[in-house]
Amino acid sequence: MSFATRFAPSPTGALHKGHAYSAVVAWRAAQVAGGRFILRIEDTDFTRCRPEHEAGIYEDLAWLGLDWEVPVLRQSDHRADYEAAIQQLGERGLLYRCFRTRKEQAALARDGGDGSVFRGGPPELDEEAAFLAEGRPFAWRLSLAAARDHLGDLGRLTWIEEGLEPGLKTAVPERLGDMVIGRKDIGAGYVIASVIDDARQGISHVIRGVDLADMTSIQRVLQALLDLPTPTYRHHPLVLDETGQRLAKRKGSPSLKSLRESGMSAADLLAEFGL
């Protein structure tokens, strides 16, 4: 497979330095390998995505001096593909409905001792029937127990890591538990859409921040269940703020647009990154 990588932002807000670093690292990797750099718009959550944010992504990346293949794939244009995959997994008994509210999930996570892991399970059949009759919203979760029944030991699933701590890695999906794959109200989410699109677009290398490293185990399980190829992964360090915390849209981290308007050049930013 020829080298192909991607930068796949969600248009839910303005890009910040962390996004810029990830995009430039991926773009440069494609340049060095003589391969493809693909921009993908991951707008599955239509309740938060905005056209002006998508327009800002193009403006910011052009300011950084990057170019990419066109046309750009928008996940909102391919919802039917993701829903078909969810339906397939559901028919094979690999998903279950979860009716817990965010508050209930947080309490469950606290009781389990790790807020990042879902320690729940499917509802009882009579309880599920009652909730459905009420029209209560739910999320589709991937059942790791059912996945083991289909695939055997999930630890046999592997991938090659070329970034931090390189080598052959084995899946440990238990670190994240039964993850949400889609929701009744907004449909399929990032986790399943990304593996489908990585296969669709021939992505050979997934280059992204180390904060998503644990997600690889869940995506590796989905690749096996859906008979999709496994890319090589390359996780890089995060760009941190002056307090040592990761940058985030929800925290109001300075946007690339604001840095640009303050007089910073793309060359200044790349020098700050050591690039």
Rank of each mutant, 00 (worst) to 15 (best):
Q88D: 13
G163F: 05
H53R: 02
Q31W: 08
G93Y: 04
D126I: 04
E162N: 14
Q88S: 10
H53Y: 15
A139S: 15
R102H: 01
Y58H: 15
S143D: 06
Y82S: 03
A80Q: 13
H78I: 01
L142C: 05
E59S: 15
L144G: 04
R28V: 05
I86G: 04
Q75S: 08
L39A: 11
G34T: 11
W68V: 12
E124M: 09
R97D: 01
E124N: 10
K103F: 03
P137R: 11
F37R: 14
A130V: 03
G112T: 00
E54Y: 12
G121P: 07
P137E: 06
A26F: 13
L61W: 13
W140G: 07
A80K: 10
G90L: 05
G120Q: 02
A107G: 00
E69H: 12
A33K: 02
P137W: 11
E162A: 15
E128Q: 13
L144T: 06
G120F: 00
R40M: 10
G112A: 09
P51K: 11
L108V: 01
F99N: 01
D67G: 14
A139V: 15
L73P: 10
G93N: 08
T101N: 08
A33M: 05
Y21V: 01
E104F: 00
P71G: 08
F99K: 07
A130C: 02
F131Q: 11
E124F: 02
D77I: 02
Q88V: 01
G112M: 00
Q87C: 09
P123F: 13
W63S: 13
L94H: 08
G35N: 13
E69P: 05
I160D: 14
H53N: 06
L73N: 05
I57M: 07
R36V: 13
A80H: 14
R48L: 11
R148V: 00
A146G: 02
G135Y: 11
P137M: 07
L39W: 13
A146C: 03
L94S: 04
L89M: 15
F131W: 09
G155I: 03
E127A: 15
T44W: 05
A109R: 15
T47Y: 05
R74E: 03
A130D: 10
R50Q: 12
L157Q: 04
D81C: 06
E128H: 07
V117K: 02
S76L: 12
Q75W: 05
R40D: 09
D67Y: 13
W159S: 06
S116V: 02
I86S: 02
H150G: 00
I57S: 06
W159E: 05
E54T: 09
L154Q: 06
P137D: 06
L144N: 04
R102W: 00
F37M: 14
R28K: 12
A106P: 07
D60G: 12
V72Y: 10
E59G: 03
L61Y: 14
A145K: 11
D149N: 14
D60N: 14
W27T: 05
C49K: 07
Q75D: 08
L125N: 01
F131D: 14
V70I: 03
A106C: 03
P122Q: 13
D153V: 01
R74P: 03
R48Y: 09
L164W: 01
A23P: 07
D114H: 04
H78M: 10
A26T: 09
